[in-house]
Amino acid sequence: MKKKEICFLELDSNIYSKDAIKLAIYDYSDNYYFKLTKDSTKYKIIITPKRNEDSFIDNLIAKFEQTVLDYDIRLKIEKDFKVLREIILAQAFAPCDNLEEILESTER
């Protein structure tokens, strides 16, 4: 039986957000187990393949870091337009007459 490999990764907690890391972990959790810990400056991640027959895909660390960065972006821009998304959905099913006022109030 092939021995499972283990991968270590450290991410600067001043740069990467915990939420983005957790979302990325969810994406990869079909094939890997993750252990996430944190010290004063870094998130420490241990990655283990779930099945003996699995091995690490090429550039796993690089791809995982890219996924974390992308989720960071998504979380950031989501904050920008979360309210707009809710207004679009509300307007779609229950249109209101004072849309301009509502939008102005969200800008304040």
């Binding site: 679009i88 959905l89 307007q91 099913f93 249109p95």
Partner: peptide
């Protein structure tokens, strides 16, 4: 003209 975009997006969403 943000409200115009929102109104059009709402129609498209519907």
């Amino acid at each position: 003209n943000l409200h115009e975009y929102i109104e059009l997006l709402a129609i498209k969403y519907r």
